[in-house]
Design a binder for these strands. Structure first.
Ligand code: SF4
Ligand code: SF4
Lengths: 177, 177
DNA sequence: CGAAATAAGGATATCTTTTGTCCTTGATAG
DNA sequence: CTATCAAGGACAAAAGATATCCTTATTTCG
């Protein structure tokens, strides 16, 4: 389902992959975006709705909370709600909140091992290899930065079957504190 | 060195990261690009030049070989050489040869767990979340597809100190079969 | 006030992936 | 014939992802 080409290159089937937490967080934000003003939705409800382990999903939601993307409330009728309007929440913010902000290419500075290199030689700036890879990372981020949560909700509201959309909304409302 | 922001978000310090093999393969290709026509360079020489474990680097080179990016030759004076001119070899080809071609976002289809979803409901196409993430992946690939190995060599030849560039070239030539 | 529900987060266990080593096989140059 | 090479299988160690359990402090509601 997720292979692009015939790619069967030795034992290297797996590509660098985002945590499944990212998918969970995106789905949860989409749900929270539909919540009426001031209401909260608990981890329990979000986990149940998506069929996910509650305790582990909680870690992803904590990531969103620490990044300031959601507000929380304790006690019964507590839970999560978005900290800003869906139109001001980007995909990149959500992805980075759970996945971190490191680049995909990390440089282990192997050029320092060059046997021809003088002992006192000091490369100051990152070399071209790293810069090129980081530009690709930035293109990835730029794309995600350009998509708002509200864009997603807009697409989903058109694509999801109306009766499913409606019943899901009601299911959530019943549990929103 | 590789952090973009202050990003200290819970235990999630690590981002999805490319194998170090990718860095190794890019460096090796840069070296091979400087090889005179018809000459080969062995795993042993490449590993020694970069200070890498020979047997493990070998796996990365096998990836390049299986992808048809390099030609190999057995026996003494054997090794690797590029299968095509550096101007026709893209970063993306090299990266995919060692890392694979899977997307960074894999969809575990959690929408199927929606308790409101009718039993016989069948979502055919991937939803908007997945499509958006895949577009970002494609932007990343497009960027890497646009950079040729010859571009890298051009930049390096300007940036690397001339005496180091020259001595490295000679070091390689001494060992090229 | 007291009980139940909640987020936050520490500790730990398990599984997968990455990284690395070792060895065998078959081919090739000299 | 011998030394050297790529290919690749088997295996081990380290790191990371996934998941569970438990404690603590806070808040709502009866
Ligand atoms: S800076 Fe360039 S040479 Fe140094 S490790 Fe990173 S990619 Fe390799
Ligand atoms: S297709 Fe969409 S809803 Fe289904 S698992 Fe993928 S991202 Fe989630």
């Amino acid at each position: 389902m997720s292979l692009i080409g015939p790619a069967k290159i030795g034992p290297w089937n797996k590509f660098m992959i985002l945590k499944s937490q990212v998918e969970w967080a995106l789905h949860c934000c989409a749900i929270l975006a539909g919540l009426p003003d001031g209401r909260y939705l608990s981890t329990k409800a979000l986990a149940e709705f998506h069929g996910l382990p509650k305790e582990y999903l909680s870690k992803a939601l904590q990531g969103l909370s620490q990044a300031g993307l959601v507000d929380t409330s304790l006690g019964p009728s507590g839970g999560y709600r978005l900290a800003k309007p869906p139109a001001e929440l980007t995909f990149l913010e959500i992805v980075e909140a759970v996945e971190g902000r490191q680049r995909t290419f990390v440089c282990t500075n192997i050029r320092a091992n060059n046997p021809c290199r003088p002992k006192d030689h000091c490369e100051s700036s990152p070399c071209a290899v790293a810069r090129i890879m980081w530009e690709a990372d930035e293109a990835w981020r730029a794309k995600l930065r350009g998509v708002k949560l509200s864009d997603l909700v807009g697409i989903l509201s058109q694509e999801v079957a109306p009766e499913l959309w409606k019943s899901s909304f009601e299911w959530v409302l019943e549990r929103a504190g």
